[in-house]
Nucleic acid binder design. Sequence first.
DNA 1: AACATAAATGAAAGCGCTTTCATTGTTTGT
DNA 2: ACAAACAATGAAAGCGCTTTCATTTATGTT
Lengths: 332, 332
Amino acid sequence: MATIYQVAELAGVSLATVSRVMNGNVKVSEKSRAKVQSAMKELGYQPNIIAQSLASNRTNRVGVLVSELSGPFFSYMLAVVESALREEGKHAIITAGHSDVAKEQEGIEFLLGCRCDALILHIDAISDEYLLKLKERNVPFSLINHRIDEIADCCFTVDNEQGGYLAAKAVIDCGHTRIAYISGPEFKEDARMRLNGHKRALAEAGLTFDEALHYRGNYNEDGGKEGFDQLSEQRFSALVCANDEMATGAMYSARKHGLDLPHDLSIVGYDDQVFARYTYPTLTTIKNPIAEMGSMAAKWVLKEVYNINTTETIHNTFEPKLIIRNSIEENT
Amino acid sequence: MATIYQVAELAGVSLATVSRVMNGNVKVSEKSRAKVQSAMKELGYQPNIIAQSLASNRTNRVGVLVSELSGPFFSYMLAVVESALREEGKHAIITAGHSDVAKEQEGIEFLLGCRCDALILHIDAISDEYLLKLKERNVPFSLINHRIDEIADCCFTVDNEQGGYLAAKAVIDCGHTRIAYISGPEFKEDARMRLNGHKRALAEAGLTFDEALHYRGNYNEDGGKEGFDQLSEQRFSALVCANDEMATGAMYSARKHGLDLPHDLSIVGYDDQVFARYTYPTLTTIKNPIAEMGSMAAKWVLKEVYNINTTETIHNTFEPKLIIRNSIEENT
DNA sequence: AACATAAATGAAAGCGCTTTCATTGTTTGT
DNA sequence: ACAAACAATGAAAGCGCTTTCATTTATGTT
């Protein structure tokens, strides 16, 4: 592996000049530049990025922490983030936090230990105070799917309230009036917001939110099954679930109770997971702009930390979108 | 950030001794060790891994190239690989190859440019010659889902032939005798192997493979739909598909043709994708031991490159497994 | 032509470690 | 008790770059 010395020697210049040609931040005469570039080519020179990192105190690494590496949501986001970073020659170091305070903190410490220049975090469990303290430590990071008012400019979130609204609106627009709801765990911010949006849609349509038609689920398929079982004592023609897993669970139970889907019951999910296109009937759901969020979080880092400006302006909240499939029908 | 000098000073030893305490490969007296350790704790010392890398010519980075970062198969594998590596203090640098020769090569060059100590590759397009040349360049790597005889010890593959066999066997065991098959693209090794296994199962049961009951698909949902449409002119009670996407496509078409699933037609998929649990009826399929393969590929690297021995012995081929769900029924 | 100014360049220090080699202090064998 | 062997340690070089600062070279001005 050729070093900068050999390039300098072959080009007949000092290694400082070679370095300047590489980095392009200081002027170098055309003549020297040409000599250096041809020497680099001749030697097949590739800079040692480790040495560069040590000397410049820049690693060009960005740490990415997500709840899980597997799972459609995060893997899709990772894909977007990685390619945005790679485009600018930055390396993504990824790790998982598993929705657990200790593991998330450990993950962050791990990434910091890797001397990442910046972090992109999707956290579930860590407290705001911890994150604010991290900011104070001058660790640049952007936050996905979680908003802290004090540092709102680096938070990239989806309007879950609006998503909840759209999901309810979808069945309201089909003429449904008795609408059940299976919500997510209340400790999750997104679950609370989705429920709020749901209530807003009902109110707007002049419908009252009936606690008897509300089941508090856990975001898992089982929660959907149990939710339907409990709710089945009530009468309703539409069921909105706070995520797709619970929606499929509810479908399962509904069918077990002898319902013909979607004729006897309209169902709406949330997240537009890959499998939503494969359920029977295919699931009407709400799609989060994951790609946009991930890409924006990456761009924020590129801009703030590396001073790489995009033409695109940074914005922080993203709108969810209704995806209509076959699981809802006009109320008859 | 404290440096090794400050630790040495506080501990009253030379920095060489501090380094030795950290690395643990040279004997240090108990007294010195204790002094150093308490100094490290007092200063909150964290070694600068960049400097370590430069000095030791070891980056502790492992590059991971997969076809796609999104998608259940790879994201799950990534999760396993990452955690196996992290356990030993290695960092995974990930990137995607998008099943394209140029992009895969670019990805490998990128990872090499990151000075990874080793690579873990899942490639689709790159030629064996290229990979053999890479080995000659003394780049240590392990290969997932692809076998090259010359370097078989670093190849970790699933027995796709056996998987194809198991899929066919599942419906044969249910008493089906007229069995259709939708295969994957022939340029893919796994697709060919699955088909071979299918034929073997038929032969073993004394059934002949009928080309009229064979549709050459493309691994996509559409391929499944078109496949069923074409095959529907024939008479058969079971349909085996070379992957889950095509199976769901076929389900869709079958239902469109008025069939009652699984009563009128038993269907088997392959891959056990997440959505296989959500189709209706839920899909009987073949599960690849992705986690095991990923973990083994990581262990190979840990052992060969970092001399970290596990108790576990390395083995190279993995057995697929039949997952029985509701999409197949006894032939009546 | 002589000078002031600006542009290009090189020498060298330094980034924070690892590791070699020489040195010191401690055992062991006779 | 003394040489021989060994264990523990420190000094210093080196990993391949960036960057500062001093120096040289080119350019413009009168």
